[in-house]
């Protein structure tokens, strides 16, 4: 489960512990820094650099200026991949967010049976994307799947063979996998809302639905921003689930940007254009993360972690 977290700003207020003396201390950070520079920072610059080259993945790397960019930007496949990616982000957000808020609110109660239910709720979190995709592939198979076995006509569809159906399946499976995680975040958020607010509302005679919309939802603002950022940036770079489930198909109905990058790079051996797509992914991801932080106000991340 790879969920790129939000860029947490200034979380480490360095004014932290005064009086800590410096001798030898910086050395303790060196191993972590080395690992991260080697496989985090250098690749980030590397992907920019490689987008100006041509490389087949085995032979020599040649500088070719803007050739890769020209090839990528003029390819009609790019707007399509961008559109599919956008749809996946938007629809999976629209399905997951309301469901996660409701489930999270529900799970925030302390009744015993809710605790029991939650044991089952979180199981999808444990499975790998590959396992989930394989399960649904088998389950939805028009000939051998669950629908065929039960003999219910409406379930016997070529779920992964029809563009619209396949897209719907992707959104469903993504939600199945990630709603538990986001419910968990919302559960934490709801439990932090001061009880006194509800008690006051109760005295004023507010009903449960009223309380949900007037207290719970506004109080969850920063949780919503955090969860949405994780969701949006996460589904931008969605790869394994879609790769195993549909491989971008049928046709190119579910070919998202990350898949496009993989196919060009590791199947067509065009690392230059694939790197250009990767750069687009990085930039879109950063832009979305920044945008969502703006939406939450300047101090979203901070107050979020403060606990509202």
């Amino acid at each position: 489960m790879t969920v790129p977290p939000i860029p947490a700003r200034g979380s480490a207020s360095l004014a932290a512990v005064p009086g800590g003396q410096g001798r030898g201390l910086p050395w303790l950070a060196v191993p972590a820094l080395l690992f991260f520079v080697a496989f985090g920072v250098i690749p980030l610059f590397g992907v920019f650099a490689l987008s100006f080259t041509s490389w087949d993945g085995l032979g020599e790397i040649h500088l070719t200026g803007f050739d890769s960019w020209r090839a990528v930007l003029t390819d009609p496949g790019l707007p399509h991949a961008l559109w599919v990616t956008f749809l996946v982000i938007a629809l999976s957000w629209a399905v997951q967010t309301p469901a996660s808020i409701l489930l999270g609110t529900f799970l925030a109660g302390f009744q015993r049976y809710r605790a029991v239910l939650s044991v089952f709720y979180f199981i999808p979190l444990l499975l790998s994307s590959a396992a989930i995709a394989i399960t649904y592939k088998a389950l939805l198979d028009p000939n051998f799947g669950l629908g065929a076995g039960l003999g219910i006509p409406i379930l016997v569809q070529d779920w992964l063979g029809e563009p619209v159906l396949a897209f719907g399946v992707v959104i469903f499976v993504v939600s199945w996998q990630f709603i538990p995680f986001h419910s968990l975040i919302y559960q934490g958020g709801v439990r932090q809302i001061p009880r006194s607010m509800y008690e006051a509302a109760e005295i004023d005679g507010a009903g449960r639905i009223r309380m949900f919309f007037s207290i719970t939802l506004p109080q969850l603002k920063y949780t919503i921003i955090t969860s949405s950022t994780l969701m949006v940036v996460g589904s931008l770079v969605f790869f394994d689930l879609i790769f195993v489930l549909t491989a971008g198909g049928p046709g190119d109905a579910t070919r998202v940007l990350a898949l496009e990058m993989y196919k060009r790079g590791f199947q067509a051996n065009l690392m230059g254009p694939a790197s250009a797509i990767a750069v687009i992914l990085v930039l879109v991801g950063l832009a979305l993360a920044l945008l969502l932080r703006r939406l939450g106000g300047r101090d979203a991340t901070h107050s979020q972690l403060e606990g509202a």
Partner: peptide
């Protein structure tokens, strides 16, 4: 301080997008 900001920046990098240079390395 610089190390810390490097790690914080790292939180925002989608690692899937840097897989090609990692392959090269």
């Amino acid at each position: 301080r610089w190390t810390n900001s490097t790690f914080l920046m790292g939180l925002a990098i989608p690692h899937q997008a840097t897989i090609i240079p990692i392959y090269l390395i």
